[in-house]
């Protein structure tokens, strides 16, 4: 196998370990401490924020407008309308701003 295929293979093994690892390690404990529980509950907002934050920082007016619209949409609507309207705002904004 080529080096590239080997890198893909080991990358896949490493990735699968991250996907089963949390569960395999955690299931060794019979009781989950309330602090661990609270920490786990905070995971989604924490991780997804870190994926969004740099994109927001390096964005421009078109992107910020789209995010603002997404924020307002989230008060009343579900994910799909939020996403479609914000994406439309983004594309329209980029036509204007470039």
């Amino acid at each position: 196998m080529s080096t590239t295929v080997w890198i893909i293979f080991w990358g896949a093994v490493a990735t699968y370990l991250t996907r089963i690892g949390g569960h395999l390690v955690l299931s060794r404990f019979e009781h989950v401490h309330p602090r661990v529980e609270a920490a786990l509950n905070a995971v989604p907002a924490a991780v997804l924020t870190t994926i969004v934050a740099p994109a927001v920082l390096t964005a421009g007016p078109a992107e910020w407008t789209a995010l603002l619209v997404a924020g307002l949409m989230s008060l009343r609507f579900g994910m799909l309308p939020l996403f479609l309207v914000s994406a439309a705002v983004l594309i329209a904004g980029r036509q204007l701003v470039g």
Partner: peptide, 8 residues
């Protein structure tokens, strides 16, 4: 980050 998802 999947470690955290998988644990959760």
């Amino acid at each position: 980050r999947h470690v955290l998802y998988s644990a959760a």
